[in-house]
């Protein structure tokens, strides 16, 4: 290659800046992973016997699989910078239905599950159309549909818990533990692998991020924005439905008041995940890591004797600190970049 030597030998100044940039980029990329390992180490050392016990581990895996699925569901529309606030309510209503359809209507669970998945797709389509066709802000549209779903769950159950009596084993074992491995974690893993491939390795996934980064630019490069956003809401709806079926199988009751409390943890995990692996954008691995970090650190603190309400301080605190740090890091990278060529804006 006929390049001048000047190209291959950067001046010390630019080299220093490049190193600084790479370094801050690296810390941002793997920060969450480091935190996760630290959490395991610290609590593993403080409570060596109980923290790593199979029961504790499996307990966390099972209870967090629902949050993880919901966080992954939320991630997809969030990649395009659209909010889906209906996922929590959506989860709740489907959890009621999967029990209720079996108990009240006598429908076998595979048929009930199939019906629920179809309904979930429909909810996604409605959310997507409200946002793309009717141009309602996603925050408002999904708050509306979510509240409607919550109303539906309470209407269907008359506000009462549906107790899942004589549920078939094939339904309840679905979320059991096989060979020491919790099945729900397996489902999360499968979903995560698929979503990872889509978001990281398929043009359609990249388009979602492009829309999120700059919708105008996305339009001018020929991306059908509305179709992508609609699709993102459909995926989010589908995964919320899956999470609802799993939750029904775990709880073995259908409780109309369950659901909304899952929204914020799922959101927090997604946003916290956006600080790592691919700093600045929501991503699959970051989301899963965040769920794990939040769950394990809370479990550890609990084992040290902290009361139950500490988890809220914990989640809230971590979210603010982590997102704050990542914004600080991004600004730092930006100023390093700006310093490299004296450019403004």
């Amino acid at each position: 290659m006929a390049r001048t030597t000047q190209d291959t030998a950067p001046t010390p100044r630019t080299r220093g800046q490049a190193t600084g940039r790479t370094l801050s980029h690296l810390t941002a990329t793997y920060g969450l992973l480091v935190v996760f390992v630290l959490v395991l180490l610290v609590f593993g050392l403080l409570r060596p016997d109980s923290f790593f016990s199979a029961m504790n581990m499996n307990g966390i895996m099972v209870s967090q699989s629902v949050t993880a699925l919901l966080a992954l569901a939320e991630m997809v529309p969030l990649a395009t910078k659209q909010f889906d606030l209906s996922v929590g309510y959506h989860l709740g209503v489907m959890q009621v239905l999967i029990i209720g359809l079996q108990v009240n209507q006598g429908i076998p669970w595979p048929a009930a599950a199939a019906l629920i998945l179809v309904l979930s797709l429909a909810v996604g389509v409605v959310n997507g159309l409200l946002v793309t066709r009717f141009r309602i802000d996603s925050f408002i549209a999904t708050m509306g549909t979510g509240t409607l779903l919550y109303g539906f769950a309470n209407w269907y159950s008359n506000g009462e818990q549906i107790v899942g009596m004589s549920l078939p084993d094939s339904f309840t074992n679905m979320t059991g533990i096989v060979w020491g491995f919790p099945l729900p974690a397996l489902y999360v893993l499968v979903v995560a692998c698929i979503l990872w491939a889509v978001t990281e390795r398929l043009p359609v996934g990249r388009n979602l991020y492009v829309i999120g980064a700059n919708p105008r630019a996305a339009e001018l490069t020929g991306i059908a924005i509305n179709r992508h956003i609609l699709g993102a809401f459909v995926v989010s709806g589908f995964l919320s439905g899956v999470a609802g079926i799993l939750l029904g199988s775990i709880l073995q009751t259908g409780t109309p008041s369950v659901g909304p409390e899952y929204l914020l943890p799922a959101f927090a995990a997604t946003l916290l995940g956006a600080t790592s692996i691919r700093p600045g954008r929501v991503n699959v691995i970051g989301t899963l890591l965040s769920v794990l970090v939040l769950a394990f650190s809370f479990s550890g603190v609990q084992q040290l004797g902290a009361p139950f309400y500490v988890q809220y301080f914990f989640n809230g605190g971590i979210l603010i600190v982590a997102v704050g740090l990542s914004i600080y890091a991004a600004r730092k990278r930006q100023s390093l970049a700006g310093g490299a060529d004296g450019r403004s804006g």
Partner: peptide
Amino acid sequence: FPNVPNVRGGLFSPI
């Protein structure tokens, strides 16, 4: 390559 199908393949052909 913001919209890969502009260059090659479809929305679902792997990158």
